[in-house]
Design a protein around this nucleic acid. Structure first.
Lengths: 245, 245
DNA sequence: ATCCTTCTTTGATCCAGATCAATAATGTCA
DNA sequence: TGACATTATTGATCTGGATCAAAGAAGGAT
């Protein structure tokens, strides 16, 4: 019943974009070979973050954007009142830090939820970089545009869905993103805690726990602590599209 | 008590970015004179939208991004179940349509809430355009980044704030955006309905109405149908920053 | 004008999910 | 190995905001 842990453990270090298994998901997606080779020269690879270590914090100067290479990175914003809102969980191949371009300062916090490696795309001289790698410009526009689309979806989830639909949406989104990365869409480990899932979805962790239990009782999923097995994908999909779907 | 209506009526048609009063808020913000002149040659001005007319609809092909010149444009997303979530209200100088770059298709709907004029920045050959106007590239990165920051704030509002804090946040945000545009920050007309405010904030229109009444009873604002007068800005600010603020 | 539709306000009631509480399971470190 | 902190589950109760309802106010069409 328990899925093998290594299916989502990507801690292997890749040396170049060309050889990286993420190339079709990450920044180089759709770029020509020449462009990717030029990109490789710009990108910096840092030593991995340990669980709990920060990639950046609110107030930090903006030095570049980041691509997750392995692991999982949580990004959250702080309200004036000190409350945290998790903005997203970033999987390998996903880009974070884009929201700091305008102010040259990070407003959010990015922290590793497990050992995570990443690449840095220095942004100090972006105009220069995009001149050297013209395809990078369009690529960045597309990545930022996709991020906006994702956030629009999240606004809809937070604004219009009930707790059950939120949790179902969350599970489906995670499942799809794992599938894109070549992992099982039905069997995975939730690295984040119930508390963090609830925070992200605008519900309490008790509610998340209860809905997981309810889904299990109804044969939609099976849950053992952090391991989730989706048993009835169609039922989940029906839940997210609301009553009329 | 009732503010003059024309303070937010910008229906005058401007002919060029150089002469446009919005230049410091809009796409040309911070760009050099030469760049702005080149930009002017690319930008297209269309005849105004009447109230209820659509700038684009979900499924429409992506032809370019839009800058609001006057009026107010509402952007909303549709869920599978047919529910609408308003993503934003766009004021003069603000840019919309950026989320359609990646898929070359609009997923959202943009409709004028009053007579509104706009400019189109054709995006078919963006690489070409940014070669002609290099400053435009950085400008677009910044604008998209700011949009991401705004949406992050909205996620926090939807996910963590109660109804009172949501409405207070909404009023302050509108107030700030009017001030930036040279209008009164204390006296303005809400073009959108209570229904639309509620939809945007993830509460019902009855709740919006009740909270407006409560704020009026407490001397924080005065409301007459669509006209709002902020009487105690500090009280509003205190409300949005939560208990500990 | 008059009708009709839409928007807004306000009251009464209800309920989904929050909060409070207790226990169990798991992980961590000495 | 045991002591302690953290995380997860489940139950009981409470409440903010939803829902249901009604009536007034404003705007639009003819």
């Amino acid at each position: 019943m328990k899925p093998e842990h290594q299916i989502i453990d990507l801690a292997k270090v890749k040396v170049s974009c060309t050889n990286c298994s993420l190339t079709e998901l990450c920044l180089p997606r759709g770029m020509g070979e020449d462009a990717v080779r030029k990109l490789e020269k710009i990108i910096k690879r840092a030593s991995p973050l340990q669980k709990g270590e920060y990639l950046y914090r609110g107030g930090d100067p903006f030095n570049g954007i980041y691509a997750v290479r392995s692991g999982l990175i949580k990004v959250y914003a702080n309200s004036d009142g000190g409350e945290e809102q998790i903005i997203g969980f970033y999987l390998p191949g996903e880009i974070l830090g884009l929201d700091a371009i305008e102010n040259n300062t990070h407003a959010c916090f990015a922290v590793a939820l497990e050992t995570s490696s990443y690449c840095t795309i220095p942004f100090a001289d972006l105009s220069g970089i995009c001149k050297v790698v013209p395809e990078l410009q369009d690529q960045l526009f597309k990545i930022m545009s996709r991020e906006l689309t994702n956030e629009n979806q999240m606004l809809l989830t937070l604004g219009k869905k009930n707790a059950e639909e939120k949790v179902a949406t969350f599970l489906l989104t995670i499942s799809n993103r794992y599938r894109q990365r070549g992992y099982s869409a039905n069997d995975f480990k939730l690295i984040m805690s119930r508390q963090e899932i609830g925070n992200y979805l605008g519900v309490t962790f008790e509610t998340v726990s209860r809905i997981f239990s309810r889904f299990q009782r109804d044969g939609i999923i099976s849950v053992h602590k952090k391991y989730v097995n989706i048993l009835d994908m169609d039922a989940l999909k029906k839940l997210v599209s609301g009553c009329c779907g």
